[in-house]
Design a protein around this nucleic acid. Structure first.
Lengths: 203, 203
DNA sequence: CCAAAAACGTACATATGTGTACACTTTTTA
DNA sequence: TAAAAAGTGTACACATATGTACGTTTTTGG
């Protein structure tokens, strides 16, 4: 199969998987059902992904790449570190609370092997936190923040921004947030964060 | 069956369910397996709990009662509100990150109906946040804190305390925390929180 | 344009779940 | 102590999942 065709076919399959995941949850989503939904063959799914976990691991990795890309673009769109942080926050929040990330987190919660969870952590938090840390370090150097340690500060920033929203999304008691909500949340989180980490602004 | 006997029997069944949940996850835990593990009859489980969801909903409610009780005791053990908050924090953190709460959250993540999630929210966050809010309101009245709104302040407190620890536990990338970890976390969270919400201490 | 490779669709063996039924045993209660 | 109520263990009907096999159709590439 042509590389391009195959990539597109895989994207179709993964979209089908997301659809079923949304409708039936992880437990209710079988390889057979995904194959049917994508009008693909059961055997092809097993050949390409190995097993159910392999498929979802691939999806986690694709999603992580996408998230990371969006964050890097948001970072580049700002001049000073604090402005970057403010650009990053809504993007991060939207992605972490979006349909796809939540579906994958649910899948990881149901996966006893722990592989999916590890993949999410590797591509998610473990990739994002360093970006935030780096921004905070630069903000400290520029004098717009005074944090004791970038690691702790990043953790606090993420805690204030995300809080328990993600787990509440995962257990199904929160709908996907509207842009207005995201904006408001970013504002309160940034305000609180500035209180925590000093607030000697340049301007 | 005597009321007492039955209560004890139900506790046994629920303990068996927790054991299996820990070993095999929600998807891998069947009613039949729980019945076997507890040496109870399949039919009894269905009669008592209705279905799988009913069983886990009962477990959620029992766990919520227990958590609430522990928090109320922690609150009563302190004199001024800020001290109460400091007593509550480690208890809350330990319970939210404990085996049982995590197992139930995983179950809720796998339950497409949303009933379990709703039950967790009702007995968990929706019951806990008001307790914290009330403490914060009293702290403000006593002059030891200056929060804009108790609701926002409570959210920030919980965000700083719990952060993404719970979701990370649920997807299996964090072990149950040691007491040392809890203590340290409470300290940094309290410190940060005091920065956010004013810090005019009495002493 | 045709041979080779890959994907499709269906079927299969095997395993396991859910929820119900029933004969048998234990506990309660009058 | 005997009838009634409740629990146990096993079996069942039904559904569905996983991972594999195979004949047929489509796509690729020389």
């Amino acid at each position: 199969m042509r590389e391009e065709t195959r990539t597109e076919r895989q994207a179709q399959i993964e979209r089908a998987a997301y659809r079923l995941l949304r409708e039936r949850g992880y437990g209710g989503t079988s390889m057979l059902a995904i194959a049917r939904e994508a009008r693909a063959s059961n055997e092809t799914l097993y050949r390409w992904y190995g097993d159910k976990n392999g498929l979802f691991k691939t999806m986690v990795e694709a999603n992580a790449r996408e998230t990371r890309g969006a964050l890097l673009r948001a970072i580049e769109a700002g001049d000073d570190p604090l402005e970057c942080l403010e650009n990053v926050a809504p993007v991060l929040l939207s992605m972490l609370l979006g349909e796809r990330a939540i579906a994958l987190n649910r899948a990881a919660a149901a996966d006893e092997s722990g592989e999916l969870g590890a993949a999410i952590a590797a591509g998610g938090r473990n990739a994002v936190a360093p970006l935030v840390e780096e921004l905070l370090r630069r903000a400290c150097e520029a004098g717009s923040l005074t944090a004791s340690s970038p690691t702790t500060a990043a953790e606090q920033f993420l805690g204030l921004l995300i809080g328990d929203l993600q787990i509440r999304r995962v257990i199904g008691v929160l709908p996907e947030p509207e842009p207005d909500f995201v904006e408001a949340r970013v504002f309160t989180a940034m305000t609180a964060f500035k209180s925590v980490c000093g607030f000697s602004f340049i301007d």
